[in-house]
Nucleic acid binder design. Structure first.
Lengths: 184, 184
DNA sequence: CCGCTCATGTAACTGGTTACATGATTTA
DNA sequence: TAAATCATGTAACCAGTTACATGAGCGG
């Protein structure tokens, strides 16, 4: 939230909120019950300042980042970065793959096929995003967008390879509900 | 947690907990205050069953997944998978890159260099993991490990390219704390 | 006997989500 | 004038984290 207020210049909580709501990433929902309280905490802590800004009869508060808030943003950004950020990036799809053995072989194939197809679709979307002039013009936006493209390309290639390996030599797994393999 | 109980066969909450504690992924900390309550909920819901298992004077409860729990696991795994899982995978590093403009040019370069170096280190670790026989032998483990390798390779390549672009033509940004660009 | 691991929990704190509540302004 | 958007919040609920508390078994 602090970063968004910094980037969007003086802006309302509503605008910051929609940065999350419009984002394809589901990490944070951007619910009002989260954004308004966090802005209150940031203001009380002196990291942002609110300017009253009335348009007609409607009142709104526009937030700006204070020097103290900027310093905090710098510390948050790093360097140094905490280890957990530099480690293997989380992927909910990869997590589920750990439990692939709980599905029948045909279900496994169907799951991988669905994920790969959806991945290609998403890839087309983010590639189009990367080509948009307002994204391509900004250094940071371009880096972020190309990172999303790279992550999706890697995922699609990984899924394709996994699917090929699965289909290639389908080890006969006895029917019976896919019991977990006994750890010897 | 349900998936771990399924995969590890009859196992204690302690074992399930350490699956999170030992994992490099920080998505869930595996704190006792989370794992024990969730196992209680799973048991009350009939998704897992506990077998009392006393070793000497020490008592412990070993959990197993019930048929109902297995059905639930299958539904959770999909197909179909929810959209947010199939979208661009989250990456805390990518998120921070959105705010790279808040750093001075030299700090930006330092940050990217640090991330790239750490990425290569991590890559060596997960590649070694992938080669371990017990990982290579299991279909799911191999898929997960190769997914981690693919994600990290993509990230390192992305960072290297971003760094080259940054260093290549360093646009003169006036000193003064890196004010956000006015959105015109 | 000291320290580590195995093993199980609880309680306070924190904070995100869901759902609700309100009202002005713009647009079809 | 109806619907959508702009705009701000609150309260109950849920659940993860932190920190604490306890005790058995085992290796040095």
């Amino acid at each position: 939230v602090l970063g968004i207020i910094w980037r969007r210049g003086p802006c309302t909580a509503y605008v910051a909120r929609h940065e999350f709501l419009d984002s394809p990433s589901p990490y944070w929902s951007g619910s009002a019950g989260a954004v308004y309280p966090v802005l209150g905490r940031l203001e009380r802590g002196g990291w942002v300042r609110a300017q009253a800004h009335a348009t007609g009869r409607r009142e709104s508060r526009r937030y700006v980042v204070t020097p103290r808030g900027r310093a905090m943003l710098g510390r948050w950004l790093g360097p140094p970065l905490p280890d957990w950020i530099l480690g293997v990036p989380p992927d909910p799809l990869r997590t589920r793959m750990s439990f692939l053995g709980a599905l029948s072989t045909s279900q496994q194939a169907r799951l991988l096929a669905e994920a790969e197809r959806a991945g290609r679709e998403q890839l087309a979307l983010v590639r189009a995003e990367l080509k948009r002039p307002e994204i391509a013009a900004d250094r940071c936006d371009r880096i972020v967008a190309s990172g999303a493209v790279a992550a999706l390309e890697a995922r699609v290639a990984w899924l394709a390879e996994s699917r090929a390996r699965l289909g290639g030599r389908a080890t006969a797994r006895k029917p019976g509900g896919g019991r977990p393999p006994r750890s010897g």
